[in-house]
């Protein structure tokens, strides 16, 4: 039986979950993803802490939500709890309540004072693009210095040169491309803009057929650190990214 939800609004513990995000919920927007996760947390009976005020909401923070149509093996969410629980047990309980296509890959406890911090720590994310012939269509684009597309956001359309945001591209095969790009709250490249660039600069009319999966997300663990790490590294994931920025 699940424990009752603690009524206090006090955050006493913060658990960070790494999730696989797949299935039908790939096709919904951030607010709906958030709601799906809130409901799973409530079904799992985790003693989630609620926000104060007129309309209390469960306290959870996504590191960097992937957009509509993007699946992920590196979806991170920090959940504030009102009562201390065992992290592994919480992960199990959550896992059995998650909707189709979503799964817990790992869990770790983070300091309570960092409960809402993670968004500002994100620097880079890695994607896998897959479609027949994607590599030979995409790689030539990188020779251009200017890949300006119109970014539609918050009801406005603005030009954005996405080329400087792409750090590294590697073709694993003709049909599979690994792409590393800047991400986070300061500079961010939305993956749908890659599809737009494909259409616009490579005349690829079937660009939208490309499947996009986020493979990894990298954060700067503390101010002044010289390497980016994964928020939760799974077994065998040992590498870091050298970083000399802020």
């Amino acid at each position: 039986m699940t424990p009752p939800v603690d009524p206090s609004n006090n955050r006493v513990q913060v658990l960070r979950f790494r999730l696989v995000w797949g299935g039908p919920l790939v096709w919904v927007a951030h607010l709906d993803r958030m709601r799906a996760l809130e409901r799973a947390i409530l079904r799992a009976g985790l003693p989630v802490a609620f926000s104060q005020g007129y309309n209390p909401r469960p306290q959870l923070v996504f590191a960097l939500p992937s957009g509509v149509g993007v699946s992920s093996r590196a979806e991170y969410v920090d959940v504030s709890l009102g009562r201390e629980v065992d992290a592994e047990q919480a992960a199990q309980a959550l896992n059995s309540s998650l909707p189709k296509g979503i799964e817990v890959l790992g869990v770790t406890e983070i300091p309570v004072e960092l409960a809402t911090h993670v968004m500002s720590q994100v620097r880079i994310s890695d994607y896998v693009l897959q479609r027949s012939g994607i590599s030979s269509r995409f790689l030539p684009l990188l020779e251009r210095e200017d890949l300006t597309v119109m970014k539609f956001s918050k009801g406005k359309e603005r030009p954005l040169n996405i080329r400087p945001l792409i750090l590294e591209v590697r073709a694993e095969s003709e049909d599979r491309l690994l792409l590393r790009r800047l991400a986070g709250s300061r500079e961010n490249l939305r993956p749908d803009l890659l599809l737009l660039a494909l259409r616009q600069f490579a005349g690829d009319t079937e660009a939208d057929e490309t499947s996009i999966e986020r493979r990894d997300l990298w954060i700067l663990p503390e101010k002044g650190a010289r390497a980016l790490v994964r928020p939760i590294a799974l077994a065998g994931e040992t590498e870091e990214i050298v970083w000399d920025g802020e």
Partner: peptide
Amino acid sequence: LTAALLRSVALPGRYVGGELNE
């Protein structure tokens, strides 16, 4: 329901099903 089809509509979540307790 191809990715291209779903990317071409607003609110593709309307058409994919797969909800909890389906």
